[in-house]
Design a protein around this nucleic acid. Structure first.
Length: 103
DNA sequence: GTTATGACCCAAA
DNA sequence: GTTTGGGCCATAA
């Protein structure tokens, strides 16, 4: 990964509007690196909360929250999204048809 | 240089 | 609708 790509990823994530979510693959495509969806996660985990990047608006293509299979950060992300009117179902997933970011 | 791992994705079952 | 297996590519050891 070049530094340019990292900046492109962060720029894309910053463009995600409030109340919407985007998938890793979607971010990777828009950033110009279609096959590097996994690296998007690696970049986001270095950002954490004290950044201006809304990392919590990124979920996987199934609408599931993929952080480190831990427990705490997952709930934290969910609450951050619910604060923006993004609702989860009983299985802890968001409806990408409704809350997905379609440009 | 090779091997293993990962906040993933997609097609098939 | 969900779970599995194979594929991808960048980093770490």
């Amino acid at each position: 990964m070049t530094l340019d790509n990292v900046q492109a990823i962060l720029t894309v994530v910053r463009q995600v509007p409030r109340g919407r979510v985007a998938s890793y693959g979607q971010v990777a495509r828009i950033a110009g690196i279609p096959r590097n969806s996994r690296q998007v996660g690696s970049v986001l985990k270095t950002q954490t909360a004290d950044s201006d990047v809304p990392w919590f608006r990124i979920v996987n293509s199934q609408g599931r929250i993929s952080n480190r299979d831990n427990d705490h950060s997952q709930t934290n992300q969910r609450q951050l999204l619910e604060k923006e009117n993004v609702l989860f179902d009983e299985q802890g997933r968001v409806d990408l048809k409704v809350f997905g970011w379609n440009m």
